[in-house]
Design a protein around this nucleic acid. Structure first.
Length: 540
DNA sequence: GCCAACGTTGGC
DNA sequence: GCCAACGTTGGC
């Protein structure tokens, strides 16, 4: 990837340009031109470039597609080039940039202020000295990679890390083929995976193998590899953002010093597992596994298809639910805030949470829900923005569409059957300006608004008006109890992750969007929804 | 497993 | 040309 970037002297030193030809789709062959600033920012259009450089830069002579100046007058040179050169050393350029994108929080390492002040609030303190590899410590010059997390590694270490990760994924998918576990050919029939009859979807990368057949070469994260620089560091550095972070009252989690985090992965995996959840499940299996009372065999996953756009892209819109019918971005959710039109930095690039199709989200969560019975589920979208005649299904489903998601995330016996029962009817449109989420009493999860008949006749449904701005009310730290309380291990996650999914995120869509795998969060806010009908009830 | 980041593509 | 947002990937 980095090899594709070519210097673009027209914009000044450090600017790079890349031309990418679309390899598939209806626009196959079309080329897109991207630029990369000396600080690593990606620019996709002339508008963005103008926005990036600020109004002082006159780009009228700059041919964005070609990356050249039509008239190499000193005007553009005088403005564009020096301004970018100064960007590293002057404050004005950066200030200008922030005026354009006020929410941009990325901190560029070249800012000399970073060198003079220990700005651990903004600067990623995990970065070693500028230009030094986090792993081996050698100094290296950036090669233009856009990945922030890879920027801390030199080329060799990065390649090593990526190769290692790929290998681990492969082990998770198909195993090494050599270890004892991989040589086991039959399921044990007694582990939780076998008992739950989770689909053994090896080909799609799902980790639903019988626990005794999981590759032994999968590295467990919670221990560390023990050999990398991070693992071998014995003492906290005392100056990273974790060490400098003042203790927060009530926050039980402890963070591992940035300099002591494993740089590879973790070693010494438990037998047959790759993550803490699996480990927890195995731990709970220490006692003889009781014979479950005839577990309900999961319904065979039906084909979960909204209308695909293309071979590669899938239509995520049913066109009928309230979210699909919503025309305007809320402008408040995190995805909206990320959008350039709202002043964001365009990093997440996701649809407004309030506009993310509920039907699609349901299907992602519960693939068997409403299939075939709901317009939008098996029929073409009502308002297909992206249609692709004759498009074929993807060869395999996207990871978030895979069946075990439901069995993994849904609360067994409660939410899933309920949602199965109710999906399939059309949605009730909320009154203009409002978004309604219906909650069935006793349900462990929010239920999409069912059809009018169901909604009106089937008591007791409760409508919770989430009038905009639908702001998550003081969400309990989802991190707490998620990692820390599981085993008391010191988490390696960065402190800022606590603020993930910050305020302003619509509750319902946060659960359903982005993979729709936050069912666990329903446990967090469900009681709150109950509280709504019981004023005075204790807030969780 | 989950999420953030971002490459990529559809369509206006 | 530009934007919206889908889909993949690296990291935690």
């Amino acid at each position: 990837m980095a090899e594709d970037w070519l210097d673009c002297p027209a914009l000044g030193p450090g600017w790079k340009r890349r031309e990418v030809y679309r390899k598939s789709g209806v626009t196959c062959g079309r080329s897109d031109t991207y630029y990369q600033s000396p600080t690593g920012d990606r620019i996709r259009s002339k508008v963005e470039l103008t926005r990036y450089l600020g109004p002082a830069c006159d780009l009228s002579l700059f041919d964005f597609k070609q990356g050249i100046l039509c008239y190499p007058t000193p005007k553009v040179q005088a403005v564009a080039v020096p301004s970018k050169k100064r960007k590293k050393s002057s404050r004005s350029a950066k200030t200008r940039k922030r005026q354009v994108a006020p929410q941009r929080t990325e901190v560029r390492k070249e800012d000399p202020r970073d060198e003079t002040k220990a700005d651990t609030d903004t600067a990623p303190a995990s970065f070693p000295a500028p230009g030094c590899c986090e792993n081996c410590g050698i100094s290296f010059s950036g090669d233009g990679t856009g990945r922030q997390r890879l920027k801390t590694l030199c080329k060799d270490c990065r390649a090593q890390r990526i190769a290692f990760n790929r290998e681990q994924r492969m082990f998770k998918r198909v195993g090494c083929g050599e270890c004892a576990a991989c040589r086991v050919t039959e399921d044990c029939g007694a582990c939780s995976t076998c008992l739950l009859q989770l689909p053994h979807d090896v080909a799609s990368g799902l980790f639903c193998k019988c626990e005794r057949r999981r590759c032994l070469r999968i590295v467990q994260r919670s221990r560390g590899c023990g050999v990398c620089r991070g693992c071998q560091t014995q003492e906290d550095c005392g100056h990273c953002r974790v060490c400098l972070r003042p203790p927060r009252p009530g926050l039980r989690r402890q963070w591992r010093c940035v300099q002591r985090r494993c740089l590879r992965g973790k070693r010494g995996r438990h037998r047959g597992g790759c993550d803490s959840k699996m480990a927890a499940r195995r731990h709970s299996r220490a006692q003889p596994v009781p014979i479950l009372p005839t577990p309900q065999p999961p319904e065979p996953p039906e084909p979960t298809e909204l209308q695909p756009y293309t071979n590669r892209r899938q239509n995520r819109k049913c066109g009928a639910c309230a979210a699909c019918l919503r025309r305007m971005d809320c402008g408040r959710c995190d995805f909206c805030c990320d959008k350039p039109k709202f002043g964001g930095s365009n990093q997440k690039r996701q649809k407004c949470r309030w506009r993310q199709c509920l039907q699609f989200a349901m299907k992602r969560l519960l693939p068997s829900v409403g299939s075939g019975s709901e317009e939008g589920a098996g029929s073409p979208p009502l308002h297909p923005r992206r249609k692709r005649p004759g498009s074929a299904r993807r060869p395999h489903l996207a990871p978030t569409l895979k069946p075990p998601l439901a069995t993994r995330t849904a609360r067994p016996g409660r939410a899933q059957p309920l949602m199965k029962q109710e999906a399939g009817a059309s949605f009730v449109l909320p009154p203009p300006g409002t978004d309604l989420v219906f909650l069935r009493e006793g349900a462990s999860s929010p239920v999409q608004v069912p059809g009018p008949a169901t909604a009106s006749t089937e008591a007791p449904l409760q409508a919770v008006d989430l009038c905009l701005p639908p702001v998550k009310q003081e969400p309990p730290d989802p991190e707490e109890g998620k990692e820390e309380n599981k085993d008391g291990c010191v988490s390696e996650s960065a402190p800022e992750e606590e603020e993930a999914g910050g305020p302003g995120t619509p509750v319902i869509t946060e659960i359903f969007s982005l993979g729709g795998t936050r069912f666990r969060d329903t446990a967090v806010w469900l009681p709150r929804s109950k509280d709504l009908k019981k004023p005075g009830a204790r807030k969780q």
